[in-house]
């Protein structure tokens, strides 16, 4: 029998990619902002892939989980900044963000995940918009004015540390989240959950008759994916920007970006979100420089061409090519 550790070899290329990005960012200070942007797209891809890639279901309300993570951090900081807990308030914020995102995903998932394919997708579109209007209309969490907490952050940590948290540690955290999300992905893939999800993605009715509680496994993937979205929102949005503004966080645009990153790189592959995230973020960054204002116009046909050429995403193709070669055990 093959040693168990070999099952986790596909993490090597993923972690090498993150390490290289991180080192480039740390050694060249002018590159840090771009590296942080790349890491952000890799991380949301990695998180969204756990649901979209593994179940084949599309969630158009995904950004709502990131938004709740953002609010979680905002609430944590504003409620506890005077308690002298130090860095503890960041952890409280993270915890709140994850719990809020998880609860919403549990509520949405346990109802909507009983629907199939396109019906699920349609049902989730309403979640994001609905939650945004709820926050604005019910005037909770600052209503439509949102929450600004840069003052609280400074008061709790001092000006220098607060700025460090936003410009450095929030981005470092995104790297860590991406690393953990990649690990969870392969852990699922190699376990019973992964087999169940593969089965239900391919043929839900056959999976049921085979003894698989499809709703349960879909919900596991959904919640896991949402929890990571909450973490990313809390770090990459709340802690980095030090404000939350409903139209900025409940923005379907980000859900679409998640879908593009995952499909571009290869849904259900481990390295796909990294490849997709890098290509997408690079092009976005570069197009904004060379053709400001025309990014989307230029980007749309490029995406269509790539999807036409590689329907299984870039890593889907690479994976097929690697089959039977020595690379096979490093790529899934």
């Amino acid at each position: 029998m093959r040693p168990k550790i070999e099952k986790y070899y596909p993490l090597i290329p993923v972690y090498v990619a993150y390490l290289v990005m991180f080192l480039i960012g740390r050694t060249m200070p002018s590159m840090w902002q771009m590296v942080a942007l790349l890491a952000f797209y890799c991380a949301i891809g990695q998180a969204f892939n756990i649901f979209l890639g593994m179940t084949g279901y599309v969630d158009f309300g995904y950004v709502a989980f990131m938004a709740l993570g953002t609010y979680g951090m905002a609430l944590g900081i504003t409620a506890f900044y005077q308690t002298g807990l130090g860095i503890g308030i960041i952890f409280i914020g993270l915890l709140l963000g994850v719990v809020m995102a998880t609860l919403l995903s549990l509520a949405v998932g346990s109802v909507a995940l009983r629907l199939r394919g396109a019906y699920f997708a349609i049902a989730t579109i309403g979640v994001n918009e609905g939650f945004r209007y709820f926050v604005e209309g019910a005037k909770i969490w600052g209503g439509s004015e949102g929450m600004i907490f840069s003052r609280e952050l400074k008061e709790a940590f001092g000006a220098e540390m607060a700025s460090q948290l936003s410009t450095l540690w929030a981005d470092v955290a995104v790297f860590i989240i991406a690393v953990v999300a990649a690990f969870v992905t392969i852990y699922y893939m190699r376990g019973k959950i992964g087999y169940a999800l593969t089965a239900l993605r391919e043929d839900e009715d056959a999976a049921k008759v085979m003894g698989i509680n499809v709703t349960k496994y879909k919900i596991i993937a959904f919640i896991t994916s949402a929890a990571f979205a909450g973490l990313i929102g809390a770090m990459a949005w709340a802690l980095k920007l030090t404000y939350v503004f409903p139209p900025d966080v409940f923005k379907i645009h980000y859900t679409i970006e998640c879908i593009i990153v995952v499909l571009l790189g290869g849904a259900g592959t481990l390295l796909g979100p990294v490849v997709g995230g890098l290509i997408y973020a690079f092009s976005k960054y570069w197009l904004a420089v060379v053709a400001p204002g025309f990014q989307l116009l230029i980007f749309a046909p490029i995406i269509i061409a790539i999807i036409m050429a590689f329907p299984e995403g870039i890593m889907g193709l690479v994976k097929r090519r690697a089959k039977g070669t020595g690379w096979e055990k490093y790529i899934i």
Binding site: K192, Y195, A196, T198, A199, E202, D203, A207, M210, G211
Partner: peptide, 17 residues
């Protein structure tokens, strides 16, 4: 069949569940 999965994985799903 669960098309994208290998024959071995397909049959293993039977054993697992």
């Amino acid at each position: 069949p669960f098309k994208s999965a290998s024959v071995r994985e397909n049959v293993a799903i039977g054993a697992m569940f």
